Computed example of a mutant assay.
Amino acid sequence: MGKIFYIMGKSSSGKDTIYSRIMQDEELHLNKIILYTTRPMREGEESGREYHFVDEKVFQKFREQGRIIESRTYHTVYGPWIYFTADDGQINLEEDDYLGIGTLESYEGMKKYYGEEKLCPLYIEVEDGERLKRAIRREEQQQIPKYEEMCRRFLADAEDFSEEKLEDAGIWKRFDNKELGNCIKEIKNCIQKLQ
């Protein structure tokens, strides 16, 4: 029976980089879960790789078919952006292990849909001052930086990943991403023990 290892963390905690490196580790034999979003593609992203970039009509169609596993809508400075996981045939827990990435809210939705025994949370932490510096550096590299949205996300994370919510979700194991290589080794060891 397979498991879903689910990476979470506040914005600019390094979760996308960690996700990418763990996915590339062939020893772990993990399959990718690709989420859907209605947000615009960032520079360097590709549909079907980071996310399935779709419009709201696609989301509504999945919802009408009863195939939404979990969804979240963020009211950004650019309008609402929907992120969701769809039951689209890409997950087969009878045979495989998977690596997912998302928010605490999406983790709770996945846990409700697949069962707590199938989900293994991997929570990434970085000190807030360092996270803010990383967020600014990342935004500076965009052709059109979206600093307002970066600030909104940063502030929203304090509530979305509050200690109370983490505790309620049963998130007890945390990985400090002070040094990327060590953090990845810790996560890999954790995954191997649980496989």
Rank of each mutant, 00 (worst) to 15 (best):
I82D: 07
Y113I: 00
D88E: 08
E125K: 13
I187F: 06
V54W: 07
R63E: 09
L122C: 04
T85W: 01
D96C: 10
S47N: 10
E45F: 08
I18R: 01
T76M: 10
G181V: 11
E108I: 05
L155C: 01
L119V: 13
Q192I: 15
N177M: 01
F59E: 02
V126N: 12
Q192V: 14
S11D: 05
E43D: 08
W81E: 10
Y6E: 09
G109D: 02
E179Y: 11
I18K: 01
A156M: 04
S71I: 00
I69Y: 00
F161T: 01
C120M: 07
K3I: 12
R153Q: 06
Y123R: 01
K57P: 00
I34M: 14
K188G: 11
E95W: 09
I69W: 00
G181S: 14
K185D: 14
V126S: 14
Y83G: 12
T85R: 01
N189A: 14
R152Q: 11
Y36D: 14
K188H: 12
D16K: 07
G66M: 03
Q141Y: 06
A86C: 10
G89C: 03
R63L: 05
H52Y: 14
R21A: 08
K193I: 03
L194I: 12
I18S: 01
R21N: 01
E149P: 00
G14W: 05
D55F: 07
I22P: 08
I124C: 08
E186L: 07
Q195L: 10
I4E: 15
Y98D: 08
L194D: 10
A86K: 09
Y107S: 08
K185I: 11
K15T: 04
N182G: 04
K178I: 02
G181I: 12
F5R: 14
E163L: 03
E127Y: 02
Y51R: 04
C190S: 15
G100C: 03
G102R: 02
I184G: 13
L122K: 02
R153S: 02
D25P: 13
E140A: 11
C151G: 03
E27Q: 13
G79T: 07
K173H: 12
K178E: 06
Q141D: 07
T17G: 08
S20P: 09
I101F: 08
C190Y: 15
E108V: 07
K10M: 00
L93T: 09
Q195H: 12
E117Y: 15
E164C: 00
C190F: 15
Y123N: 01
Q141L: 10
E26C: 08
Q90N: 13
K3Y: 13
E50S: 05
L132H: 03
I144R: 05
R153Y: 03
Y147S: 14
L99Q: 09
I101L: 15
E163S: 02
S11F: 06
E164D: 04
M8I: 04
L35H: 14
T38H: 10
R131P: 01
S47I: 07
F154S: 00
Q143L: 14
R42N: 10
Y107A: 08
R152M: 07
M110Q: 05
S106T: 13
F53A: 13
G129N: 05
E130P: 03
C190I: 09
R152F: 07
K112W: 04
L28S: 11
G2N: 15
I101H: 11
I34Y: 12
L104P: 09
